[in-house]
Nucleic acid binder design. Structure first.
Lengths: 196, 196
DNA sequence: CGAGTCTTTGACCGTCCTCAATTCATGTGG
DNA sequence: CCACATGAATTGAGGACGGTCAAAGACTCG
C-alpha cells in the first residue's frame, strides 16, 4: 500500500468509482491530483495518429499512478483508464505535496518507487527494442505473472490485443507467435486461453 | 549541478578520469557508488547476444547517473561507458545515502530528477514503439538538441551508428531515412554532417 | 600519407504488417 | 433452450519495409 488510506482521507481525499474503460486522466492534460487504487486496476497508454495504442503499464490495487508529473509540473505523457471497474482515491496535488513535506519517510518511499519504475522501464525498452516477437511476448508474460513461485502454468488474464498493445506488435503477429510457442510447449493454449 | 562538489569531496568523494570508451560500470554488476560527471559525457546502454547495442541515454557535465539501483538494492540494468574523455566524481553508496538523510532538500531534488527520468523514458518508448524510422529519428534529434530556441539548424554531434543504437534501427536504415529527410529539407546534410 | 572509422550504395531476403474473411466463445433476450 | 449479437481469435494471401551482407568511397587525425 502506498499511502495509508486513513491518512489520505484525513487530508481530504475522496474515493471515486470508475467503470471499466472510463478515462481517469488524459494525455497532455495538466496533473492536479494524486491517484491511488483501492480496487480494480488501470492501464496507462498512448495512442498515435493511426489509432494504434501503446500500453505503458498496468497498475493494481494498492498502487499509485501518474505521480511523476506532480513533481515536475508537466502534463501527463499518457492516458489512464480503468482496466476493470475500479475505486480510486484522489487527492489534490497541493495536499499531496504537503503530505510529503510532513512525512519524510513517505517522501523516501516515493523516491524508492520512482527508482523501481525507472529500473523496470529500462528493462522494458531493452526487451522491446532488441528482440524478436517471441522474446517480447515472453518478457511481457514474465513481467505480468502473479504467482512467481509456482511451477504450474497460470492463465494469462490478457487478450491478444492487449499483449499486442504492450509489446508494440500486431494482434495477428501475437497470435501466430503464441501458436508457435504452444507447439514448443513454452505456453499452453486450451480453448483460446493462454497458460504460462 | 546535482550535488555540490565541495560537499561531495567533504564526504570523501574522489574524482577519477576515464578515457573515451572506458567502462564505468557494467550490466548486472552490484551498485556501490554514486557517480557525478565533472567533465565529459557518458552513455548508458545494453547489448544483446548478437552484439547489437541499445542506448538507454546520454549524460552530461553536471549530471549524475546510475542512481536508481542505489535506492532499491538492485544490480545495474545497463552498462555505462565514457562517451568522451571524462572526469567523474565517485562516492560510496553508504555516504551518498547518508547525505540524503542529512539534507532533505537534496533528497527532494532526487525525487524530482527521477520523475523527470520516468517522464522522458515514457516519451522515448512511446516514440520508438509506434513510429516509422523517420519519426524515431526526429524524436531522437529533438530530444538531444541543445539550443532549443534558435531557428537555425545546428550540427548533430552523433554518428549514424549512434543514432541507430538509440532508435533501435540499423545504420543503413538511418542513413537511408536521413537522405530522404534531407531531400524533403527536414534536415540538412553537408559533407556527411547532419544539421537539424 | 595512411590507418581507422564512418558513410554510402545496391541487391536480396525475411519478417511483420495489412486487409479481408471466417470461426469461435460468451452472454443476452425471447 | 435456441437464435442472435458482440467481441475475440484465426487464417490466408500479398506486399512493404527494414534487416543483412558485401563492397566501395570519404573523412579525420596523427
Amino acid at each position: 500500500m502506498q499511502i495509508d488510506l486513513d491518512l489520505l482521507f484525513t487530508w481530504g481525499a475522496i474515493a471515486k468509482e470508475y467503470k471499466k474503460g472510463e478515462m481517469i486522466f488524459c494525455e497532455d492534460e495538466t496533473a492536479n491530483f494524486y491517484y491511488q487504487i483501492m480496487e480494480g486496476s488501470i492501464r496507462m497508454y498512448n495512442s498515435n495518429d493511426d489509432g494504434k495504442e501503446f500500453t505503458q503499464g498496468y497498475f493494481h490495487e494498492g498502487q499509485s499512478f501518474g505521480e511523476p508529473p506532480l513533481f515536475i509540473n508537466e502534463c501527463y505523457p499518457s492516458t489512464a483508464e480503468a482496466f476493470q471497474d475500479s475505486v480510486i482515491v484522489k487527492l489534490s496535488k497541493e495536499k499531496f505535496l504537503k503530505i510529503l513535506e510532513e512525512y519524510p519517510a513517505i517522501q523516501k518511499q516515493f523516491l524508492t518507487l520512482m527508482s523501481r519504475r525507472i529500473h523496470s522501464k529500462a528493462m522494458t525498452s531493452k526487451d522491446i527494442i532488441n528482440q524478436k516477437p517471441e522474446f517480447r511476448i515472453i518478457a511481457f508474460l514474465n513481467a505480468h505473472k502473479k504467482g512467481r513461485s509456482g511451477c504450474e502454468k497460470e492463465q494469462v488474464p490478457f487478450t491478444r490485443q492487449e499483449i499486442a498493445n504492450f509489446t508494440g506488435l500486431r494482434v495477428e503477429t501475437v497470435i501466430r507467435a503464441l501458436s508457435k510457442m504452444a507447439k514448443e510447449r513454452k505456453v499452453d493454449i486450451v480453448n483460446h486461453k493462454i497458460y504460462f
